[in-house]
Design a protein around this nucleic acid. Sequence first.
DNA 1: TCACTGACCGTGG
DNA 2: ACCACGGCCAGTG
Length: 111
Amino acid sequence: MSKEIKIRNIDWIEKIYEIVRKIPKGKVTSYGAIADAIGARTTARMVGWAMNASHTAKPKVPAHRVVNRNGLLTGRHHFASPTLMQELLEAEKIEINDNQIINFEKNYWKP
DNA sequence: TCACTGACCGTGG
DNA sequence: ACCACGGCCAGTG
């Protein structure tokens, strides 16, 4: 029992930031995809929590490119402005309708 | 100190 | 087809 190296640190959070920063411009991904890319240790919920602290990460991660599985801008309310997320995505040629990304699968990028 | 919540997702009834 | 619940980690009241 003991040889197992238990990572109780918040290392996985740093990993999340790295992946999110790797998202190419004009593409989006989902919380679950990031969680799966890191490992089963982290769940989608933790990714959202990490994003909440992402504003302290350096450099700041493009959290606006991360949406939920439905392609819905669930975290838009956590940005500086509730519409900032949509504005940023539209600036990257991503069409959004009713807070939902159009052609989400087409713009979906998996780590 | 204990309990609940949180930018979610998948499966079961 | 719809509703309900569990899981994972850390932070806050």
